[in-house]
Design a protein around this nucleic acid. Structure first.
Lengths: 152, 152
DNA sequence: CCTTATCGGGGGAAATCTTCCCATATTCAA
DNA sequence: TTGAATATGGGAAGATTTCCCCCGATAAGG
């Protein structure tokens, strides 16, 4: 695929902010006809730069007001532990992110739950499925910034 | 607004996975006519449950392969520090999330950069704008799970 | 100069969305 | 049971958008 130029980047910036704007307006906004714009978008989709179009939901209206980061420090794991851990966390929808990290903590989990009781249910379910040694949770008191937009 | 029932939840689940499917297919998939489906979506948008439609981009194709979590422990801050910190982080596009946390760490920053050098540039820019005392970074070695989908 | 390739613009057909209508369940309360 | 309120399904019409084809401009290379 071709390299991504500045016009592509402008298109991407618009689309990851709002993908519902009609092509016509998007075109005029970035100084391109709706057709040229459309072709670039199709190319970006074909190249996998644009992954997909989704709807972003408002956590507050869905009783998911509590965001929690769970830090795991693990002692030596038996073989197959990571595989089991991966399957368990991927099967739990409250868990939105699982990362293997550098540094003193081994794994970091990002999750959304209704409240503290919801976190406890999540925690109980998690440790029931996967043996975990050192677990500590930190709760988000205030979301100063939270976006999906990649820097372009 | 009315309470969200199971049909609404199914609609939301589909939409936050893929909002590009035509109404007709979405309707048949959840067992509803395109019309009833459309009315529910409009209601969910009006109620703010559906925030907006966006395009999700692939970080790998955009040279943003490194995700980093920055932990801040702060000693006593002068008044106005949080305001300055908020403005600085919101103005830096690499920083995708900033959270005030419970527990032993005060603030958590989530960011995406091309590589370690990119992180260093981000770090330098950040500490040049806001006085920070105790900063430590953890880098994501492996993304076991990473989604925007809220649990419904 | 000519050819080729690439990119943008214009036009238009096809698909989709949006908004009506109204008849028909379904639920809930009286 | 009856009535009211609510939600659905279907049709249909117009507006909008998507998508594709063709042509012209521009640039690179022979």
């Amino acid at each position: 695929m071709n390299t991504i130029d500045d016009i592509d980047r402008r298109i991407l910036r618009e689309l990851q902010r709002d993908s519902a704007t009609p092509l016509e307006e998007l075109g005029t906004r970035i100084g391109l006809s709706r057709n040229a714009c459309w072709r670039r978008i199709k190319a970006l989709e074909a190249a996998g730069v644009i992954d997909r179009r989704v709807a972003l939901l408002n956590p507050g209206t869905l009783d998911l007001g509590l965001m929690v980061y769970i830090q795991l420090r693990t002692s030596a794991h038996e073989p197959g532990w990571l595989e089991k851990f991966s399957r368990a966390t991927n099967a739990m929808p409250e868990i939105m992110g699982v990362y293997r990290m550098t540094g003193d903590l081994d794994y970091l989990i990002r999750a959304r739950v209704p409240d503290m009781a919801g976190y406890d249910r999540l925690y109980q379910r998690l440790i029931a499925r996967v043996p975990l040694s050192d677990v500590s949770a930190s709760f988000v008191m205030e979301e100063i910034k939270d976006t999906h937009e990649l820097p372009l």
